[in-house]
Amino acid sequence: MNPKHKILFAGDPHGDFKPLIAAVHQYKPEAVVLLGDYDLEMPLEVCLQDIVGLTQIWWIAGNHDFETPSKHKHLFDSALADKGLHLKVTEIAGLRIAGLGGIFLGRVWYPPQQPKWRNKQHYLHNQPAHTRHTAMSLKYKGAIWHDEFEALKTLKADILVTHEAPGAHRHGFDVIGELAAAMGVKNIFHGHLHENYAAIVKNNIKVVGVADRAVADLMGNCLVPPLSGLV
């Protein structure tokens, strides 16, 4: 196996997993990391049944994965639920990979603005009394929370995978590059914005954007071309 193919990164599938499945059969990676927005109509392991057992499957969530209870359930209650990388560092194929799922939400935290809430408990405590003890909505569950983001900064990793883009992209956020620098990361791979590109941010960190339905290798090479889709 070509070393640059030992981990593949899959851009937003939006329900179409065929390009990723084809890439796994062709390149035989040790692991694949999915970058969010699955639009699942069935559990994730069912969508990926052709490659379950052939490679390790890891993932972070995107904004679409919090749109409806069924999309959320098919990911977070799937047989691959324990393969989520959000807010932790996991050794995968010999590399430490950190994950940051979800998106910045103006009602929670939208950098460079200050966060609206210190943490989830602060938010819930300030809700009206009749709603204070109800479950947090999916939209808020899919947000990036400032305190959790800061806690991730204290860990060390080789690669950071995110749904949101860092400041290298015109629609990205500088704080993601700052997170990567604090963690000692060398590479960032992200989805969400449906563009294949490579750039460099501070500390010589390489950023690779992976388009919808596209698949990239460790060097940032696009192995499967993208198709048009929804953000």
Rank of each mutant, 00 (worst) to 15 (best):
I57E: 08
R96H: 10
A98K: 01
F76L: 01
H64D: 08
A93K: 06
I60G: 05
V89Y: 07
I97Q: 07
L80K: 07
L87C: 14
E67W: 12
E91D: 13
S78I: 03
K71I: 05
H74S: 02
K88C: 07
H64Q: 15
K88V: 04
S70M: 10
E91P: 07
A61V: 09
I60C: 08
S78T: 04
H86V: 03
H64N: 15
F76A: 02
L85K: 02
K71Q: 13
T55A: 06
H72T: 01
I97F: 13
L95E: 14
I60F: 07
P69R: 08
I60Y: 03
G62M: 05
T55P: 07
H74L: 03
H72R: 01
V52I: 15
A93P: 08
V52Y: 11
A93F: 09
G53I: 01
F66W: 11
L87V: 09
K88S: 06
D77E: 15
H72I: 00
E67D: 13
K83P: 05
A79L: 04
G84M: 00
T90C: 09
L80F: 10
D77Y: 13
I57C: 04
E91Y: 10
P69Q: 13
L80P: 08
G53D: 04
L95F: 01
W58M: 02
L75K: 06
E67K: 10
G62F: 03
D82W: 04
W58F: 15
A81N: 04
L87Y: 14
G99R: 01
D82M: 05
Q56E: 13
A93C: 07
K71F: 12
G62H: 11
G62D: 06
H72W: 14
K83L: 03
K83M: 02
S78Q: 06
T90Y: 02
D82T: 08
A79Q: 15
T68S: 07
G62L: 07
L54C: 09
T68F: 05
A81S: 12
W59H: 03
H86N: 10
W59I: 00
A79H: 12
G62N: 00
L75E: 02
A98F: 07
L54N: 13
T90L: 05
E91C: 12
K83V: 02
H72M: 03
G53M: 03
D65Y: 02
G94A: 12
A93W: 12
F76M: 00
L80A: 04
A98M: 00
